[in-house]
Design a protein around this nucleic acid. Structure first.
Length: 987
RNA sequence: AGGACCAUAGCUCAGUUGGUUAGAGCGCCACGUUGACAUCGUGGAGGUCGGCGGUUCAAAUCCGCCUGGUCCUACCA
């Protein structure tokens, strides 16, 4: 073995051998255990979030596999509609200067498929680097043939049950991608905006007394007005107003109800009139209390319009430019005015209320022009400025603006025909499943988030005006009748349509989450009744981030319950986001992204800087990022290996919280790997080719052997329990502490005198070799789910010595998880080793305090103890001599004969190191004074406690007794320190 | 506006049902290349557990309020 651990030399080799060995496929005889990977974007690449999540899933999977469960980790990728289409559109534009429309639907989707084949292996290769033990033979894609079938089936069945419907609704529209998106894909961001106040003149120049009152009912303003004041942040939508609404209780406007007012935009001769109505929606205390109702461009207004029969006038096209189609403005305005008077004007699709000069303009340009025109006309509300001059009233205001999470474009509420899933009846059982515990969230508090969302669920818009995705299985005849079926043929048969009836398929595709919602059962072969489905569904646990509980988890639960009658998974382990060391979100634009593969393989500084700033448009920003990067990683990033990265993730995986990725810990765990590596080297150097007592015959185990075996059992219990509770941080810590602080720091050191001293017996050596090897072998099994590579590599060498190797091609992967054996917990051995450690630490302390070189041989005396201390001294003499570097160690019967010595207590026994005048008297006195002071404080605290009658009376006896014992110990120690001080002072 | 979560050593974090002299890793200081490991060893310094109240014999832990931070949800035209 190399002297230092070199991860890159073992990782790829082992992954390949595991895969070729068929170790990833389900094989256990025990109960099934299944995890579905949240399918990453097929064309994506592995980021820290994936790496974290994959580590957790792989750890669980390997662990259950070792426990003998019939374990499946289902792998696959998602077609990721918008994201992938966007990427390929950009690529085609860059390479050929063409838009997708230039190519046409078929040619474009061909390009996407090509790109999928070209780049689709990237993320799965990276998944392999993480050591993910997924079953590649079952790899799926959300647009493969089988999945296609499942998606069609679900759509058709939902439609037949009346749970999918089509309708013209106001939806979130992304003008960049020209598609509807769901509420969840909208990000509300605070931006600086304006609120304008305009006058809507009353029809026919009518006037009224406008009276404002304060809370006491005193009149604060009274004037005659011929208008109603309206505030808006989106003046361009005024063109589509269908009414002005006020609250029914608002006395100011009571005289106006039912009257008409004029929208102050558009050619003067065709100013449009709209009614003033009442509705509960306007808040009398906000703005003027009067709200313009633009049903086609605002969600709240839409609801008001629906309630009051106000027509919805669409003003924009798919790119959110002002409409050019339909009737002329003059015709449209005339029709709309008739509607305002209560006439039925029928279908309003053709009505285009955009004035000629604004048609075709971008919405923001149109806004500017509308404001300009109204202001010029003197119809803006005004306010006095500092000099007393009247100025148009424009408030600066921060407002929440909706943006597309992918496009970054401002989302437009837009009236279009879309497909919807009626969620009400799907949500009920989905809520119940969590309420009654069929599905359990870990940590539990995410259940509240789930309930809150599910109980206020809007119908789900599932159609997307994209080309990449599952095309909706609906066909239309010339009259617009819709036929939903699994295929065109089925549509004809089902509805008895003659062959000459022309049918065209719906152009839209389904929301990506519609197909990924079927992931747990679609991957297992549904709608066929496959054996896999029978065996592995419902799956055991879903490992996912809180950010997609709504997107994905909730929808999976609804769809899976509806179609299989089963929950998709029994538990949902929710993890947080991986952030950078300072707690910032990792993002390309911030330039703080870490690539898991770079952490594994290492990357030099220049390459890292290039990676972070490569495609950056703003040179200023690129410079800043480059500087920050050079500062943070002056040497670049050195290789750490997959195992160290995995262990870091696990150690930071506290439930449900974001993790700040800590490079320091990554370094630390790389060192930990090196520690394990070198400990193994030591074991192999001392055991290979020697009798390790694994031939089945009896061996003699020393106290140290029995102690480490005992501690191993306890560690196994701890790790197992932590894994069961998804506390990977505890599991990794227990393992770390056992390996480093006990096995390496103590047991390996204790084995040296046995293996190396001439007077050690062959029997004891045999027992120690056996323990060294067996414990290490168990450690490797215990650590394997977390650190698969290094453990496998070492295990291949250790297992033959331990007698657990089954021959050529054997792998640690399929060896049993070490279960603790209570019978091997050995209290007596533990007490002995604790005593031994106590004496050694005492002597080391004395060395440090007296500034004696660690290697200088010393003389030590033990005194004041009892018979068992004396026995232990004899039993442990060689260990004490070796580990504490002693040239002499004696028992002193009469403490009074003790020479001047540095002293430490171990239980009641004193450990003495004669000082022989080589100490600094003043320094030692100062140290002792400080120490005595510290003891005094502690003693004072406990005495106070024990002096409190109610404490003694009310606290449990055990607690009181514990305090008394503590007091005794502290007092003994204090007496010792004082004796010591007096002796030294007397010198 | 409503809700959730968080606040413990310089940094990143543990701390089970209230009872520890409040822990770990990294960093820091001192000493040390002894035959697994300097990606190491030994020892050490460093915290009134965000603040204020309350419950209790006893609070980092339970309750209330406040401050600061993160995030969700809904948003007022």
């Amino acid at each position: 073995m190399d002297k230092t651990y070199q991860p890159e030399q073992i990782e790829n080799r082992w992954y390949q051998r595991w895969e070729e060995g068929g170790h990833f496929a389900p094989s256990g005889q025990g109960a099934p255990f299944a995890i579905m990977i949240p399918p990453p974007n097929v064309t994506g690449s592995l980021h820290m979030g994936h790496a974290f999540q994959d580590t957790i899933m792989d750890t669980l999977t390997r662990w259950q596999r070792m426990r003998g469960r019939n374990t499946l980790w289902q792998v696959g990728t998602d077609h990721a509609g918008i994201a992938t289409q966007m990427l390929v559109e950009r690529k085609v534009a860059a390479e050929e200067g063409k838009s997708r429309h230039d190519l046409g639907r078929e040619a474009f989707t061909d390009r996407v498929w090509e790109w999928k084949h070209e780049s689709g292996g990237h993320i799965t290769r990276q998944l392999r680097r993480m050591g993910a033990s997924v079953d590649w033979s079952r790899e799926r894609f959300t647009m493969d043939d089988g999945f296609y079938k499942a998606v069609q089936e679900v759509f058709v069945q939902l439609f037949d049950k009346g749970l999918i419907y089509r309708g013209k609704r106001l939806v979130n529209w992304d003008p960049k991608f020209e598609t509807a998106i769901s509420d969840l894909e909208v990000e509300n961001i605070e931006v600086n905006g304006h609120m304008w106040h305009f006058k809507y003149p009353l029809a026919g120049g009518e006037t009224y007394e406008y009276i404002e009152k304060d809370a006491e009912g005193n009149v604060t303003r009274r004037e005659t007005r011929d208008y109603i004041s309206i505030a808006t942040t989106r003046p361009e939508t005024m063109l589509g107003d269908g009414a002005v609404a006020v609250h029914p209780s608002d006395e100011r406007y009571a005289p106006l109800i039912g009257k008409l007012c004029e929208i102050p935009v558009g050619p003067k001769e065709h100013r449009r009139l709209i009614p003033i109505i009442t509705d509960e929606y306007p808040d009398p205390d906000f703005g003027s209390g009067a709200v313009k109702i633009t049903g086609a461009h605002d969600f709240n207004d839409y609801a008001v319009a629906q309630r009051n029969g106000i027509p919805l006038y669409n003003l924009m096209d798919r790119k959110a430019h002002m409409r050019r189609d339909g009737l002329s403005y003059e015709e449209s305005a005339t029709l709309a005015s008739r509607a305002a008077r209560g006439e039925d004007i029928g279908d309003v699709d053709e009505v285009n209320l955009v004035p000629t000069e604004l048609r075709g303009l971008d919405r923001f340009e149109a806004r500017r022009r509308v404001v300009e025109a109204i202001t010029a006309e003197g119809l803006a509300m005004t306010t006095a400025d500092a000099e007393g001059n009247e100025q148009p009233l424009v408030e600066s205001k921060t407002l929440m603006q909706p943006f597309g999470d992918r496009s970054g474009d401002v989302i437009e509420p837009y009236l279009t025909d879309q497909w919807f899933v009626a969620v009400e009846n799907l949500a009920k059982p989905a809520i119940a499943a969590v309420e009654n515990g069929d599905i359990e969230f870990v940590p539990k508090n995410y259940e509240n988030m789930y309930f809150a969302w599910m109980r206020d669920l809007q119908d789900w818009c599932i159609s997307r005006q994209l080309w990449w995705g599952h095309r909706i299985p609906a066909w239309y005849d010339a009259d617009g009748n819709v036929y939903v079926a699994r295929s065109e043929t089925e549509a004809r048969n089902k509805h008895g349509l003659a062959d000459d009836v022309g049918l065209t398929q719906d152009e839209d595709v389904l929301d990506t989450w519609f197909s990924s919602g079927l992931w747990t059962f679609g991957t297992l072969g549904w709608p066929e009744k496959t054996e896999a489905l029978e065996t592995f569904h419902p799956t055991n646990v879903l490992v996912t981030g809180f950010d997609i509980i709504f997107f994905w988890v909730a929808r999976m639960i609804m769809l899976t319950l509806e179609f299989t009658g089963e929950v998709p998974f029994k538990q949902v382990y929710v993890h947080g986001l991986v952030r950078d060391g300072q707690g910032n979100k990792m993002s390309k634009s911030k330039g703080n992204v870490l690539d898991p593969i770079d952490l594994i393989d290492g990357i030099d500084l220049e390459a890292l800087v290039e990676k972070r700033t490569g495609n950056m448009m703003q040179p200023q920003k690129a410079k800043a990022i480059a500087k920050a990067t050079r500062q943070e990683f002056p040497e670049g990033i050195e290789p750490h290996g997959t195992d160290a990265l995995r262990f870091t993730f696990l150690s930071q995986a506290t439930t449900g919280r974001d993790i700040k990725f800590d490079m320091g810990r990554l370094d630390g765990y790389r060192n930990f790997c090196n520690k394990l590596w070198n400990a193994s080297r030591y074991v192999l150097m001392n055991a290979e080719g020697q009798d390790c007592g694994t031939d089945g015959s009896e061996v003699e185990l020393s106290l140290a052997d029995r102690w480490i075996v005992s501690r191993l059992q306890q560690t196994e219990t701890q790790v197992t329990r932590a894994m069961e509770e998804y506390r990977f941080d505890h599991a990794s810590q227990a393992l770390y502490e056992f390996i480093w602080n006990e096995y390496c720091d103590w047991y390996l050191e204790l084995s040296k005198p046995v293996l190396w001293d001439d007077d050690a017996t062959p029997e004891s050596q045999r027992g120690t070799r056996r323990t060294l090897v067996r414990v290490l072998e168990a450690i490797l099994r215990l650590a394997h789910p977390m650190m698969p590579y290094i453990t496998e590599e070492i295990w291949q060498r250790v297992a033959p010595l331990a007698g657990t190797y089954r021959g050529e091609g054997d792998s640690l992967m399929v060896h049993p998880w070490p279960e603790a054996d209570e019978a091997r917990v050995d209290e007596a051995a533990t007490r002995n080793i604790e005593w031994l450690k106590g004496v050694i630490v005492a002597i080391r302390n004395i060395r440090a305090e007296l500034n004696i070189a660690p290697g200088k041989p010393l003389e030590a005396l033990l005194t004041k103890g009892d018979a068992s201390d004396r026995e232990r001294l004899e039993a442990n003499r060689p260990f004490l001599a070796k580990l504490a570097k002693l040239e002499r160690l004696d028992w002193l019967d009469d403490p009074a004969e003790a020479p001047l010595a540095a002293t430490q207590l171990v239980g009641d026994m004193e450990v003495l190191v004669p000082m022989a005048g080589l100490i600094d008297k003043d320094a030692e006195l100062a140290r002792l004074a400080k120490e005595i002071d510290k003891q005094d404080k502690l003693i004072g605290g406990i005495e106070k406690k024990l002096g409190n009658e109610s404490f003694v009376a009310k606290a449990p006896d055990a607690v009181v007794q514990k305090e008394r014992d503590k007091l005794d110990d502290l007092s003994a120690n204090r007496r010792l320190l004082i004796e010591q001080r007096d002796k030294i002072a007397a010198l």
